[in-house]
Simulated assay, not measured.
Amino acid sequence: MRKLPSDQPHCRLTRQIHCLPVQMRGVEQMAGPEIANLDDRIRQVIGVAVDACGLGLVQKVTGLPLGFSNVNFRVETDQGTFLARLCRTQPDDRIRDEAHFLESIRASGFPASYPIARTDGTPITFHDDQRVMIYEFIEGEEPAVTPDSARQVGEAIGLLSTLEVPAGYSSSSLSDIDEAKQFLITKAKQLKKYPELFSQLQQETAEIESFLQIKLPRGFVHADAFPDNTIFRDGKLVALIDFEDSCEDALLFDVGMTILGFGYQDEHPESEQIRALLEGYQSRRPLSDLELDMLPTMVRRCAHGLTLWHLQRFIEDPTARQQHRISELQHRIQRLHAKDAEVIRSVTGR
């Protein structure tokens, strides 16, 4: 991240965030990608899940790089290669909704890693206090963030926005404004130690609550289309993965979140990437004038929701990785009130 003069608002907020670990001992140091730990207990849990899906005998299990929530493993059996996900964050109903939606769009050919049901037709294996989902394993790699990858992912989320939400699906946004307000109340004691940060979060929450009164087209959104949730092979998008945050929300939410993932380079918005992303999206679903007008604020809403998500987990289990992510997001929110919003408007012409 580029250094800023110390009298700028972001730096004052960043210093407060960097102070958080001083009050909470045992914070891990920043390092390279951490790999999921495989022990005998987890190996047994995965074996039970694979057997429940009728996928043959396990031959090899390999831990994959850790994200911010779930734990994933590559599983090779005598019938093929699969992905085992230990579900550590979302409640059972939300996991079932994810499987329900993906099953409903399987015939569409949408590029995704689809879950593999157990032989009894249910998606989740419960064993030894663990919850396991088994998915198709898609070979490929995380893409470089370029105009081409942004265009392809933009087209994918545009296509996703046109798919029907199945009956019985009920998951709502994780960026719920009432939950955000409740978090600021219940964690006020901890947050008041950092008054400028706390004040900024309160003000931002009030502004986002006002923005949410605007009626925008709604439907299914992935809600987390960042590079590490996409798989490319030979320069082509082959799968959008990790639908656990998916929900019904304003369709523009997916555009805003994907701009955070594919519209920035070195913490600054890149107009060429944002333009390519929007072109890809609008090849599937044109945005209305109102949506284009609201786009900078929607990007800010997404950054605000991510900040609160990471901050909540940081308070529960402080790590240097969470600390760094919160700092990045606070920087981005500050800029989305000014320069970053101007870049987005220059692309949309609004």
Rank of each mutant, 00 (worst) to 15 (best):
R2C: 05
D97L: 03
E267W: 13
F126K: 13
L55F: 11
K192T: 15
C19A: 15
D289P: 01
L201H: 14
G305E: 10
N70W: 02
A167T: 11
I116Y: 02
K181D: 06
V347E: 10
E155S: 12
C87N: 03
S271A: 15
D228W: 03
F68T: 12
G47A: 06
L163D: 12
T122D: 13
E291N: 01
F101T: 10
L212R: 04
A223C: 06
T77Y: 09
R313P: 13
Q182F: 12
Q44D: 01
E98N: 07
L306T: 07
G32H: 12
P195Y: 13
L277Y: 07
G235N: 04
R332D: 12
G219V: 13
F243A: 08
V255C: 07
D129S: 08
S288K: 14
G280E: 10
K193D: 13
I35N: 01
N72T: 13
L55T: 15
L20I: 15
I177F: 05
G154P: 10
L308Q: 03
D120Q: 07
I231K: 00
F232G: 07
D245W: 12
R301C: 14
K187R: 15
G158Y: 03
P269G: 04
T125S: 09
L160S: 09
L260T: 00
I208D: 15
D293L: 09
A36K: 12
F226W: 06
T186F: 00
V45L: 06
A156H: 01
V27K: 00
Q323A: 10
E103K: 01
S113P: 13
E103W: 00
P147H: 00
I95P: 14
S175R: 02
K339A: 14
I241V: 15
Q273P: 12
R2V: 11
F211P: 12
P65K: 07
A239N: 04
Y135D: 10
D234Y: 07
N70R: 05
Q59K: 15
I134Y: 13
Q182H: 15
E76N: 01
H10L: 09
K215M: 05
L86P: 04
L4I: 11
Q322F: 14
S199V: 00
L306R: 10
I185Q: 10
Q323S: 13
L86Q: 05
L64E: 09
Y114L: 10
P195W: 15
P143G: 03
F253G: 04
I105K: 09
H127D: 08
Y169N: 05
P217T: 09
G140H: 06
Q330V: 13
H268W: 11
